[in-house]
């Protein structure tokens, strides 16, 4: 049980996918203009991250490793994630139209979200077992949610601030992102020291 709590804390705070590992920067900058859309995107990411791990871990363990094809991981995982997202879209559209409407365009966008690919590859690299890998994905997704919502809040305030013309738009956004990221570095060391 302790290991799962550790995984959650590290995934959300110290090893946050966006703010500490710098994965998934594109949606982080792209869809963080409003808190509502940021939350929608993040929920979709959580969904896909967990499902992608659930699908790729067995593929790796039972299909790739026994045949010595580990080097195909990246290619195969991209393929599987893309297929999975498409499948998810069809299924949601049919059975959960409200959720499908809420996630909207973000669902297909996740196909190319490197945080999703990152989490499945890191799970294999760190040699986690199946439950741990799933927990890591969940934590990674939750961390993405936290980062997105925090940053969307920052950006909504940035929007109405008076910024020098040369810094308007992306420069100011990137500077703000680095500050938020730095604040997350403050969590480093917390997880190790609490649980040991």
């Amino acid at each position: 049980m302790k290991i799962f709590i550790t995984i959650l804390i590290t995934g959300i705070l110290t090893q946050n996918f966006v703010l500490a590992r710098f994965l998934g920067i594109c949606p982080f900058l792209g869809v963080s203009k409003k808190v509502g859309t940021a939350a929608g995107m993040s929920v979709a990411v959580i969904f896909v991250m967990v499902l992608a791990t659930a699908a790729t871990w067995p593929i790796n363990a039972y299909l790739l490793v026994p045949r010595g094809l580990e080097y195909l991981q990246t290619v195969v995982f991209i393929l599987v994630i893309a297929g999975l997202v498409q499948l998810l879209e069809v299924v949601l559209k049919r059975f959960l139209p409200p959720l499908y409407d809420a996630l909207g365009i973000y669902l297909p966008l996740i196909t190319t979200n490197c945080a999703v690919l990152g989490v499945v590859l890191l799970n294999i690299q760190n040699q986690l077992d199946y439950p741990q890998a799933l927990a890591t994905s969940l934590a990674g997704g939750l961390g993405f949610l936290v980062a997105m919502i925090l940053f969307a809040g920052v950006r909504e305030r940035l929007e109405s601030a008076e910024i020098p013309k040369s810094l308007k738009g992306l420069p100011a956004t990137l500077a703000a992102a680095s500050l938020v990221s730095m604040s997350f570095l403050g969590f480093a060391g917390i997880a190790e020291n609490i649980f040991n």
Binding site: L63, L69, L72, V75, V76, L79, V80, G83
Partner: peptide, 13 residues
Amino acid sequence: FVAALALVLGLGL
């Protein structure tokens, strides 16, 4: 292997 996987996924979709 990859072709078979793609085929399975494609057909499934």
